[in-house]
Amino acid sequence: MDFTNLIEGLAGFTVDGLTKGSIYALVALGYTLVYGVLRLINFAHSEVFMVGAWTVLGVYTAVGAHSGVGVWLAIGITLLAGLVAALVSAGTALVVERVAYRPLRNKNAPPLIVLITAIGCSLVLVEIFGHALRVFFGAPFGRSAVNIPTVVPTREVFTIGNFNMSNIDLIVILAAVGMMVALDLFVNKSRLGRGVRAVAQDPDTASLMGVNKNNVIMLVFIIGGVAAGLAALLHTMKYDFAKFDMGFLIGIKAFTAAVLGGIGNLRGALVGGLLLGVCEVYSSALISSNWEDVTAFVILVVVLMFRPTGILGESLGKARA
């Protein structure tokens, strides 16, 4: 256990953790919303994220983006990519819901069946990008990672001592927090948001009150998809690649984050994500990176054992005063 190393670089490691955690938080949004409303672990959500990353690549390629573009152009391209990725991700989420989850919902299938179906959908999406699209379109699809051009170059924003903050990290963290705040406002203040909370609390009563359950469910998937698309944009900005299996591990960590913060709780997704990211980086700094996943899983098990409702506890469906 290398504590001196950790303490010396604490600021740097913390920011790294927050950045990593921001991406977890945005993906966790999708998990927490869907679980809060449907009691379903949407395994395919990690693939919605992956599709978003490929969309960003697609937009960059279509626009001809490369690393030398000027500042304003870079911002424009990035925003465009984010928008398109959010739309495509949301679309993918809706397709999965319609094709796989709705028929099962109509049959009132038990959770195990829905979980297995979700795993199957995840596998199908992974393989479409890992193989099927390669057969039909060739490169860049396939089993290797694809480079995404760095439109926004990494620059130091400010330096304190031996710690320097990069612009990408700052953007990622601020974007995640911003999205969370926006979403929180939406769910708590708007009419549609009220509908979401109503269905999460009691679907039948909500429909008696005039809330269209299916529309709310679609909305929830859309919001989750948008968040995942945005997370994909931020991920590509930081790591510059897309790969067919990039979603899987991030999905599991994001679900852990959602549980950590309190499933069904939007603020919990943020808190859980950031906390998980920081814990992972700290453990990697203390020991080494090959224990990173164990850290996440141990956190998951411990939280579920001692505080299954999560840190922030309350769920989406709990009535507020």
Binding site: A100, V114, G120, G130, H131
Partner: peptide
């Protein structure tokens, strides 16, 4: 060979939806 995981995923979804 390379189609096997996709076929597996599709079969999984199909069977779970049609004959859970």
């Amino acid at each position: 060979e390379s189609w096997r995981p996709l076929a597996f995923g599709v079969a999984l979804v199909a069977i779970m939806v049609l004959r859970p």
